[in-house]
Amino acid sequence: MTGTAHAAFRRLFNEIGPVDHVGIEERVAKYTTRSIKKGSKLFGLKLAASMVDLTTLEGKDTPGKVESLCQKALSPAEDPAVPMVAAVCVYPAMVKYARRALGEDTPVRIASVATAFPSGQAPLKTRLAEVRSAVADGADEIDMVINRGAFLSGEFQLVQDEIAAVLQACGPATLKVILEVSELETYDNIRAASFLAMRVLRPNDFIKTSTGKTTLNATLGNNQVMLEAIRDFYLDTGTPIAMKPAGGIRTAKQALQFLIAVKETLGDEWLNNTRYRFGASSLLNDLLRQIEKERTGAYQAPYYFSEAAESY
């Protein structure tokens, strides 16, 4: 790390305060001992289902697969009490097929991972063009990746300028800023990157943990660091930023633990799909399976639930 980069980090850390790794792990371990039963469990499961960004991000995605994903998003289960998911999340080239499948007048939003996802290693011009094209094709939300290289070399201005440029290219579309936490290495860096992004974003834009394409994705620990950053920023500025953990959340039990973290860190105003999302695909069927278990008292075989897409 160069001297200048070091100074930049020191300045930013001084401003936003440090994070203690051991302390964070200890805090989130308490969420896993919460015991959610009966009515509160059903509420939590349905809430989680309504927060899912149902995702397929594969090289082998086809218009047909995206269509079936959209179908699943609109009616996850036969039970009408099960809510629709919040959004589908696809590559930019698939946005137009998603729009065709969902129609214009649908509560399910279309999110697209633009900006040379997952590496972000394309010229800014190319990345912005990708964002504009996704929005033009009908994307309601853009999931961008930050420039991790710039962040790690302390070029914070560049990181923020790029986010601001993408924000402009988004127009009315909601922006989700992927920090790619596994490449930021430390909780201190995750907190720092959260602040850099939040200082540029509009109310109810998102910060998001990860692309799902690296070794480590959303954990209760990095989720907590980001929730606390959102809380501090909100209490300081009044601007509410939304949160999306993505990747690695496969079971209903995990999802409930993430929601307990939201409930106890940010409170009731973040317990909705405007302010909190899950980037996941296999999670949805586990939620449905648990909801069905609460309704019938018995677990159904996994093959009773239609596959939407392969997990990531």
Binding site: K37, G39, S40, F43, G44, L235, D268
Partner: peptide, 13 residues
């Protein structure tokens, strides 16, 4: 000043 609301939206059984 903004405040957080820790209410009973999701009460535990």
């Amino acid at each position: 000043a903004p405040e957080l609301i820790f209410g009973d939206l999701w009460e535990f059984d």
